[in-house]
Design a binder for these strands. Structure first.
Lengths: 208, 208
DNA sequence: GTCTATACGAGGATAGAC
DNA sequence: GTCTATCCTCGTATAGAC
């Protein structure tokens, strides 16, 4: 027995509207997560900013954790897109620098949800969210490749364990230095980004 | 009219006990602040860990904010002590490295309260707490001196604005890289500390 | 100045009408 | 699947006895 009351055209339109609203929700969450982090973000706030009732939020996402996980997954997929769009002509280090540049500048625009520090309650929710973990795995795999290549070419210190490089890349994406410098008001977003990329790769001592 | 009922000896003893308990409270808070940060730390937890009733806590400190501020002030005073105890033979850069080393290793021991990121609610409470701001001012002054000296000697990149160096010093004290590496279990605390100090000053590229 | 008990608000989540 | 109204837990802070 086929359903008779809903033509497929209207169904597709409904689906689109649903999709549209979920995108709006995730945009709001993305913004709030970058401004206040998971623990300080409230569902009331999310609902108010989206312009819907809190109960409606729970029709789209089962919990605050699920909402944050969806948002973080979307972020990782965007990161993968960014990585994919890098020019083939880049060296491995140039790619790594480009990723940090993208992350810091996203952070400065206020659209970089705080990456799960060891001190937030999302941490475990993320680890149980398969799509997030899968995207993260892909990203890490790509980074590991570049790190290895850069080290074998001498573009990156060989004495540095690759984990240190990997974690440093992630950590710089939410480096509070960016916030402090922005708050100071003496630099443009672009200048701040370059300063952080530079200190990350060249250090504060600079070239001898 | 002098008080008659309390001999000065007993009074002093009472004072000592009070001091002792407050130290115990601050030790607990210090530990909890480094494990969970301000927003996730609860007063129930503090009271339980100290072994006193929550109401008693409020006899010593007026609010959660006041408690955190006292703890952070004590931390800054310890930092000042550390700075003061550095050998005179050190160069400016060596002093800066020593400070980062102290901070990271304190962090790894679980006794480094998270420095006020722009995303916590303590931020404003700290700015209104005179003792904290005064200690912070002294520390910044000393750092600024060393940064200037190091740059004029060419021990630190001259193209780097001093604010960037200053903020980076503070940021590395609560660098999540340390937590990630510790969680990985592949390195000792000492190794982690040296890796972070090294990447902070020499960068990931290393010496050409 | 320590305790037990409680007031009070905030926030995550749900009920039930439309 | 959107709304209003409500539940319930947790966390800050205080009251009041000893």
């Amino acid at each position: 027995m086929l359903p008779t009351e809903i033509p497929s055209k209207k169904h597709s339109f409904k689906q689109q509207q649903l999709q549209f609203r979920e995108t709006a929700i995730l945009d709001t969450v993305n913004q709030l997560l970058s401004q206040k982090g998971f623990d300080l973000m409230t569902m009331d706030e999310v609902a108010a900013n989206v312009g819907i009732a809190k109960a409606s939020l729970y029709k789209h996402f089962a919990s605050k954790e699920a909402l944050a996980a969806a948002c973080m997954t979307r972020l990782l997929e965007r990161a993968l897109d960014t990585v994919h769009d890098l020019p083939d002509t880049n060296s491995a280090v140039e790619n790594l620098r480009a990723v940090v540049r993208w992350a810091v500048s996203t952070h400065l625009q206020g659209t970089m949800p705080l990456l799960p520090s060891t001190r937030s309650t999302i941490q475990s929710a993320l680890q149980n969210h398969a799509p997030y973990m899968q995207a993260l795995g892909k990203l890490i795999e790509q980074f590991a490749k570049w790190i290895h290549e850069a080290q074998s070419k001498g573009e990156l210190s060989v004495t540095l364990p690759s984990e240190v490089v990997l974690y440093t890349l992630f950590a710089r994406s939410c480096d509070p230095v960016a916030d402090f410098l922005k708050q100071g008001g003496a630099f443009t977003d672009h200048e701040i980004t370059e300063l952080i990329v530079e200190t990350t790769f060249q250090g504060m001592v600079g070239q001898a």
